[in-house]
């Protein structure tokens, strides 16, 4: 899948300010690389792995 439009990942500026631009730059590169590697070849009907069952939302006894 062509994911060029999504290739660059961004970090919230509050996080960059908190951790410093050097750490942020390294982390952004790692995230961009992992996101680019992810196999996105999912058919439309593939739901996420942890879709919750209604029972999980019911009131606990």
């Amino acid at each position: 899948m062509d994911i060029k439009n999504f290739a660059k990942r961004y970090m919230p500026k509050e996080v960059i300010e908190a951790v410093g631009s050097d750490r942020a730059e390294v982390a952004i590169k790692m995230a961009s690389s992992a996101a680019a590697r992810l196999d996105r070849n999912n058919e439309f009907f593939y739901e996420p792995a942890h879709v919750y069952h209604p029972g999980n939302w019911s009131a606990k006894k």
């Binding site: 919230p12 982390a27 992992a34 992810l38 996105r40 999912n42």
Partner: peptide
């Protein structure tokens, strides 16, 4: 921990949803 955790702040929502769909597959 900081070094390992930080990339997680840069993934976007679509990355995460695609990953959990990929996981099921």
């Amino acid at each position: 921990l900081l070094t390992r955790l930080l990339p997680g702040t840069a993934f976007n929502a679509v990355d995460y949803v695609q990953a959990v769909r990929t996981r099921a597959r």
